[in-house]
Nucleic acid binder design. Structure first.
Length: 512
RNA sequence: GGCGGUAUCGUCUAGGGGACUAGGACGGGGCCCUCUCAAGGCCCAAACACGGGUUCGAAUCCCGUUACCGCUACCA
């Protein structure tokens, strides 16, 4: 439909009215939203993470508010500086920029400990001296009985003096949060009402502080989200079962509850969670494949969100305009690179050559085909080359590949093209000599002159245009696929075109 | 095992009780355009997981089953 043709301009449709279900409506009003993307730096920026970041960012842009970035580097064993940098680079490439200073969770250790201390002081948490070995034993026992393991609170029953004695003696302990009775529920922006009976939350009184004094994920997250005044926690739905624990922590800490939105996961083509096995899963992989960031964003946005009205190809401003938390889906999506490539082709076609040039040029230069100065001196020519190639490409790499014949003096003849189009070598040679003569004699090197001359030539020989154009195409480019023959002639220019035809006839003169 | 979540063409999805002969897109097949390749246009194949309800009427609401996914750590 009209999506592609309209994508570059204004929105060709009215934005549909909000749906009736109030739980799908984002909180509105004068308050300003604060959202965050909180990756742990244990690898590259994954497409799933990128999509989570995108939705957080879109929400902030559409509804108004801040998009923040927090690096969850509390897992010292797995966190690395390289990963942190890779995440920044991925986000920067996608242009998903954050509004405030990056927060490093590891730097907030004192506050995390203070929050645990508060909970301890208010008797909402207690010290547990059980060792991991003991706990493991209890788990095994529970499993043998066919029961779900739940911590039996034995340390919560320790007399005050005993706890004091053990602490004084330096016995290691963790801090456990005391799970209250009842039920914990919330209204999820994508799932609606979700409730957990408290007795089913995890293994009972969960640990919030390790024996080395560092916080467990759920405490660190809640402490930081409170400190950052986050109003909407939007993250993968693998966190649904963490949410009741976190809600309990907010309440215990006396902090206002944010809203929650749990996004569906992204799976590989086999329906399983995306992993290395599925090939490229890092956004950097796609950057290097020649995918445009706006196409990546567009594709990712459609995985788990739909603007309705059969709209698919959108610019970033259009995505912001159309974004709505009501269009979020609950179903896990499969990452299909075929559609990503198509999407990229759409974006390539609608992106001006001037904007594409800085992405194409480095690859051309790296291949030794040209230099920066040459490209700069022939900017208009370079742009028209890109315009001709972008519509027949799905990635930047495709453009680069197809651009090869337009640089340098010599052409490399593709064996298949030669075999097919230059089958009768002497006849083709004779034809090309005639073509050369015709082109050499046209008054001006422009489209109408060339068209007129070459059509006349074909007609006089009683053959179809293709019979002339295809052998010529091979002579000019070395391949049998290219933009229209007159565009090629124009791109190459009179001198180089004629030279290449001469070179081809010379080659054809030799037997093989 | 327990708890939670999800279920529409192969894939992304529209759908919110009657407008459904279930729409669009990718991919696949065909045709048109045409100097090749793209792009574009047209056409075809292709889905409501299953079983019960509720209702005059269910893809849509309820229950169950099944399947898949997630969580079930002193990981995040």
């Amino acid at each position: 439909m009209g999506a592609a043709s309209n994508a570059g301009s204004r929105l060709p449709f009215p934005v549909s009215a909000p749906r009736a279900h109030h739980f799908r409506q984002a909180r509105s009003g004068s308050m300003t939203h604060r959202l965050r993307f909180a990756p742990s730096p244990t690898g590259y920026l994954h497409v799933g993470g990128a999509r989570t970041a995108l939705f957080n960012w879109l929400f902030a842009k559409h509804y108004g508010g801040q998009f923040l970035l927090r690096v969850e580097d509390t897992d010292k064993a797995r966190s690395t500086a390289e990963s942190t940098r890779a995440i920044f680079e991925g986000l920067e490439w996608l242009d998903l920029m954050w509004d405030e200073e990056v927060v490093y969770q590891g730097a907030n250790l004192p506050r995390h400990q203070a929050d645990a201390r508060t909970l301890l002081d208010e008797n909402k948490a207690y010290r547990c001296f059980c060792t991991q070995a003991e706990l493991e034993e209890q788990r095994k026992l529970a499993e043998a009985r066919g029961d779900a393991f739940r911590y039996d609170r034995r340390c919560d029953r320790l007399p005050r003096e005993e706890v004091a004695r053990r602490v004084a003696s330096g016995a290691p302990f963790v801090v456990r949060f005391r799970m209250p009775d009842g039920e914990t529920a919330w209204t999820d922006l994508v799932h609606g009402h979700i409730a957990f009976p408290n007795r089913d939350i995890g293994e009972g009184d969960f640990i919030i502080l390790r024996s080395d004094g560092t916080p467990i994920y759920n405490l660190a997250v809640v402490s930081d989200d409170i400190a950052m005044r986050i109003t909407l926690v939007m993250r993968g739905d693998d966190h649904i079962s963490n949410t009741p624990k976190q809600i309990l922590l907010y309440r215990a800490l006396g902090a206002p509850l944010p809203e929650f939105a749990h996004l569906p996961m992204i799976h590989g083509m086999d329906g399983k969670k995306l992993s290395k096995r599925h090939g490229a899963t890092a956004v950097g992989d796609y950057q290097h494949m020649g995918i445009l960031p706006q196409a990546m964003l567009n594709f990712l946005a459609l995985l788990g969100w739909s603007p309705g009205n059969d709209i698919e190809v959108m610019t970033v401003p259009q995505m912001i305009e159309l974004f709505s938390s009501e269009g979020l889906s609950r179903k896990a999506a499969i990452f299909d690179t075929k559609k990503l490539e198509w999407m990229n082709g759409q974006h390539l076609a609608m992106t001006p050559a001037a904007e594409l040039a800085p992405r194409v040029a480095p690859a051309l230069i790296a291949r030794g085909l040209t230099t920066e100065t040459e490209l700069e001196s022939r900017a208009a020519w370079f742009h028209s080359l890109i315009d001709l190639l972008k519509v027949r490409s799905r990635t930047i790499d495709d453009i680069v590949h197809q651009a090869v014949p337009y640089f340098g003096e010599a052409v490399t003849y593709d064996a298949d093209a030669v075999a097919k189009q230059w089958k009768d070598r002497s006849a083709v040679r004779e034809l090309l000599v005639a073509v050369r003569e015709t082109l050499a004699s046209i008054p001006e090197w422009n489209m109408p002159s060339m068209e007129h001359a070459l059509h006349a030539l074909a007609q006089s020989r009683g053959v179809g245009n293709g019979k002339v154009f295809q052998p010529l195409r091979v002579a000019l480019t070395g391949v049998s696929v290219s933009p229209g023959i007159f565009d090629v002639l124009l791109l190459l220019g009179r001198e180089r075109s004629l030279h290449r035809i001469d070179a081809a006839t010379a080659v054809l003169a030799t037997n093989n």
